[in-house]
Amino acid sequence: MTINVKLKIWRQKNAQTKGKFETYVMENINIHLSFLELLDELNEKLIKNDEIPISFSHDCREGICGTCGLFINGRAHGHLRGVTTCQLHMQMFKDGETIVIEPWRARAFPVIKDLVVDRSALDKIIQAGGYMSANVGGAADADAIFITKGIADNAFAAAKCIGCGACVATCKNASAMLFTAAKVSHLAILPQGQCERMRRVRKMVDEMDRNSFGNCTNTYACEMDCPKNISIAHIARMNREYLRSVLT
């Protein structure tokens, strides 16, 4: 089965220039094609027409690396819950539909080219403290610490974050709270993380603030568009952790 769609795509040469929308018509699209394969096909056409293909971020194409991220028809990673852009398939779109594709929009994520944005601010938050300072060589036996299943699962649920930035993109304030909270929470839950707990949350949140993200106003849009369904309960935990570190 095939469908026809119209793509309205943001084109921008680089960070310095102003961008604009371009419209492309794609006909007889195999519905088994993934959304990014549709863009591949379009790009091949553009190259053959001597035009510059559309830049968009992607890598693993199976929803785990966190590289891809497009704002599709007004939602981060499209309208489906719990999926990344690369997991969208054309069968999820209607025949004759106009699909508007925009880059993540945030001051902290400047556009590099077309749909590609610079998400290094997220790396900086992790660098500021998103780890346990455990040098190689000194670790005790892995079973020396007992961590019950509930705690391990809870930590895992936070650690699943793929760092795609959808939370920032969809938040009306372009806040990176869910991203930061996921890491703070993952490490704060585990017994191994207790030593640096207070320091870590301070350093990470302060770094987040330095990178011109907005503030959280508890709209919880991030939770809805997170491809890994990370809960806003982790934001609450971060708020608690930070409050504790400010007060002590």
Binding site: F71, N73, R75
Partner: peptide, 29 residues
């Protein structure tokens, strides 16, 4: 907060279906 939050997204989205993922009351505080 309002000023900071607005400045966190200098370029607005062309299409934004915020209503699909958040509640009315939280969007209009």
């Amino acid at each position: 907060l309002y000023i900071k939050n607005k400045s966190a997204r200098p370029v607005k989205y062309h299409v934004l279906k915020q209503g699909e993922n958040i509640k009315l009351s939280s969007n209009f505080m």
